[in-house]
């Protein structure tokens, strides 16, 4: 490999992603779009679970808050996408602040339970507060996202819009991970007491991570609303939080690559298994159990292991 050899994998990866919509069906494109939304969700969730080591089960609620904020603003006030998207991020972030402030004083199981309760409350409110949320019937008639005269009203264009957001949010997440804040999160995950005596304001850092993850979820929710152009409360229940948790665990926490792989793998896996007809969800469950058992560090952990083995066998050229 020459001087620019190290860019080759990136180019292959970029081309694959960019050319994907040109040679696939609308069916796979739709799943790819949903996977893209999950990528944003999981990158956000990684801030609290992968980096700060806090188990929260309310991520789907922030996702729902983002989706409903965007959808209701769009349907009731005809506000365009580029306003409702930041609005969704802000509202979800504010809820993150309000919820995170009391619950982050809890630890371990208690934090999981506290956030679980919040998630359930949000779904119940979405179902019951009919005057505002339109109840279990959900919200229809969301105006498609547009940029100038260009309307993102099909999966192909939306796919590229999602890539744009994923890139921005992934780069931002990477910058955060490498910052002082990111290192503080690792310190909290490793040993909270030690972090505290080292002068890290652990409560503040944890709260910031929680808000940040809620903002990511809000953005993902908004993008979800504009993808489906119909939302209903059932989508944002506990099962969704569990799906998000599973995706991160399967992909491998603490890295953007893990978040991306987990989101893509678990979005496509149940659909690939559809040919098994009645048994596909059973096989899907078995698959997840096996992955948990044999890949405790997720797909990315396994990839790292393989790489270190390759490295061991073939000394890298640059080391020579």
């Amino acid at each position: 490999m020459g001087r620019y050899g190290r860019y080759i994998p990136w180019i292959i990866l970029g081309c694959t992603i960019l050319l994907f919509p040109l040679r696939t069906s609308n069916y796979y494109l739709q799943i790819a779009c949903l996977a893209g939304i999950y990528i944003i969700l999981i990158i956000g969730y990684d801030f609290i679970l992968g980096w700060a080591g806090l188990l929260s089960l309310s991520h789907a609620a922030f996702y729902g808050i983002g989706a409903y904020t965007s959808a209701l603003l769009s349907v009731n006030f005809s506000i365009p996408f580029w306003v409702t998207l930041p609005a969704a991020a802000i509202v979800a972030g504010l809820f993150g602040l309000v919820v995170g402030f009391p619950t982050l004083r809890l630890r371990g199981h208690y934090l999981a339970l506290g956030t679980l309760a919040f998630g359930e409350i949000v779904v119940l409110v979405l179902m019951r507060w009919r005057a505002v949320t339109r109840g279990v019937d959900g919200v229809t008639g969301i105006v498609p996202a547009s940029f100038g005269l260009f309307v993102f009203d099909n999966n192909k264009s939306y796919y590229y819009l999602l890539i744009f957001f994923i890139l921005i949010l992934a780069i931002f997440a990477r910058r955060i991970h490498q910052s002082r804040f990111g290192r503080a999160l690792i310190a909290i995950r490793t040993a909270e007491v030690t972090a505290e005596v080292s002068g890290i304001d652990t409560n503040r850092i944890k709260l910031l991570a929680f808000i940040l993850s809620a903002v990511y979820a809000g953005i993902a929710g908004s993008l979800y609303a504009y993808l489906f152009r119909y939302i209903s409360p059932e989508t944002f229940g506990l099962h969704q939080s569990i799906t998000i948790l599973t995706m991160l665990l399967i992909g491998g926490g603490g890295s953007i690559g893990g978040s991306v792989l987990g989101a893509i793998l678990l979005s496509f896996l149940p659909e690939w298994l559809r040919f098994l007809k009645d048994y596909y969800l059973l096989l899907y469950g078995v698959g997840i159990v096996l992955m948990m058992a044999f890949m405790p560090d997720g797909v990315i952990g396994l990839a790292k292991k393989i790489i270190s083995k390759i490295k061991f066998r073939l000394p890298l050229r640059r080391n020579v």
Binding site: P9, W10, T16, T24, I300, K304
Partner: peptide
């Protein structure tokens, strides 16, 4: 580092091309 990306690219590539 770039080997890691290569592996990730291969996995992702497999995932994506399997769809077509």
């Amino acid at each position: 580092m770039h080997k890691k990306i290569l592996i990730a690219a291969l996995i992702l590539g497999m995932v994506l091309t399997a769809c077509g």
